[in-house]
Amino acid sequence: MKNSEKMYEAISGIRDDIIESAEALGSRRKGRFAWIGYAAAACLVLGASMFGLSRLAKKPAEAQEAALPTEQSTAAPTEDARRIVTGENGGLNEFVPSTGQRYLLPDLEQAIRASENDGCLFDVEVRIWNYAEVEAYVESEWAKVTDKQNDPAILHYNEEYDYWLDNIYEPTEADLKAQENGKGREAEYFAAYWAENYPQEEQDAYSAAMEAAKEARRAYDASTAPEALKPLRDAAAARLLTKLAEAGFDIGQEEKDGVIINYLHGLLTREQIEGFPVGDCGAFILWYGYNGAADE
């Protein structure tokens, strides 16, 4: 591989956050007279507020877009009552947390850090992804597949294929055209070449190894299908809920389709949100309730 290709491949792996933040490049640069637009908008807002039109901002649809937290005093009026902060998610989440990652919706993060919300409870949903135990199980099942795929007979076949491709194969114009369209038949040609030119015992070893690899893949698909993993996931969810209850979290599981994700709902403190335990799972924490147009 050429050095520049290695550099290209290394650049492919640049961190997600760096790639995402590059999206905004140049977006703040407007034309020379862009300030006129801003000034006009500012005048409009000022005028609207003078005529009391700012009430419009409280319409639900616009409030959702703004994604700002709203506040309600829903707790019983006792000395211990704590104000409950709720919010709406608006357009959100492009992120799936891995085991060990805790990701907070930015608007929620802002709200829990606001000093006026000191001592409040936050009405949140916690989406649990990727239990460590389930991940480990899936990985161990996948290792069985790769083990079979790395059988010496298969590796030998692949090496011979590469050699044939570089040194023996002479594609016709039609073959080249087919390759360009992603419909090349090289593998098929090599299979015929292999059948004609290699000792029977090598062919048998390869066929047996391939069959074992396919069988391992079928077994993997069955053992890691969502329904097959559900008992494991449910057990992990139950353990997490017990652990949370013991630690004083006021949180329970929601009855939603939890095949891949478990949805929890609770009233949590700032400290509980910031310290939500993710040693054995990944958690995405957002406002509870309406989650923007994408949820509809």
């Binding site: 792996g13 997600d16 995402e20 492009e94 992120f95 799936v96 891995s98 992804w129």
Partner: peptide
């Protein structure tokens, strides 16, 4: 996917 679970689908596809 699976076995991978991408954090960010867009960059995953981009790669």
């Amino acid at each position: 996917i699976p076995p991978k679970t991408p954090n960010n689908l867009k960059t995953f596809l981009g790669r």
